[in-house]
Computed example of a mutant assay.
Amino acid sequence: MRFFDAVEYQGFWGSFWDLVWWFLWAFVFFAYLMALFSIIGDLFRDHKLSGWWKAVWIFFLIFFPIITALIYLVARGGGMAERSAQAAQSYREQQDAYIKTVAGSGSSPSEEIAKAKRLLDDGTITPSEYEALKSKALAGG
């Protein structure tokens, strides 16, 4: 009787090293998925690449996934970083513009009163409307 015949199989949770290997492969798989989604997102973010080249990259990502991902990261990795930074900058600018439109003009109460005074001097608004704008600016809203 050999030693391995006497050892009973303990299942998945029975061996510490089986568990370590499982977590290692789970990590590798998760890392691959993150890289794959980053690559696909970068492909569709790149406006300079034609649709045919995008289709070729997607085809090779489906049928030769790991080698294609490595080639893509080496060949276009620098461009990925630039496009990602440009997208983040664009999102930040859009968010800032939205916040400015929601928060109002962003001018101080003195600027609002000066604008209202110019409108009054031009005859665009009446003195009562000027007083209403002035009180609104001083109230902060």
Rank of each mutant, 00 (worst) to 15 (best):
S107K: 15
I62E: 09
A69S: 09
I58H: 03
T124G: 01
S135D: 06
T101A: 13
L61G: 04
G123P: 00
A116M: 09
S50E: 06
A87R: 06
K100P: 00
Q10P: 03
M80N: 02
T124N: 06
A87M: 09
I113C: 01
D121L: 12
I40H: 03
S108K: 09
S90T: 12
F30W: 15
V20D: 04
F23A: 08
I99N: 06
M34C: 14
W13N: 10
S108C: 07
G123W: 05
P127K: 05
K115W: 15
V74M: 14
K134W: 15
W57V: 04
F44S: 15
V28F: 13
W22A: 13
I58Y: 02
V7Q: 12
I39S: 07
S135V: 04
L70S: 08
S107G: 00
K100M: 11
A75C: 13
F29G: 07
I113V: 14
P65C: 03
V28Y: 15
W25T: 00
Y9K: 11
G77M: 09
I71C: 08
G104E: 11
Q89M: 13
V20K: 05
A87D: 10
Q86A: 13
S108L: 06
S135M: 12
A69E: 04
G51Y: 01
L19W: 09
A114R: 13
A69R: 02
S105V: 02
G78R: 12
S135W: 11
D96T: 14
F27D: 07
D121T: 01
R83K: 07
L36T: 04
W25D: 09
L120Q: 02
L120D: 01
V56K: 13
P65R: 03
F16Y: 04
L36P: 00
A88F: 11
K136C: 01
F63K: 03
A26V: 02
W13K: 13
G41E: 03
W25S: 01
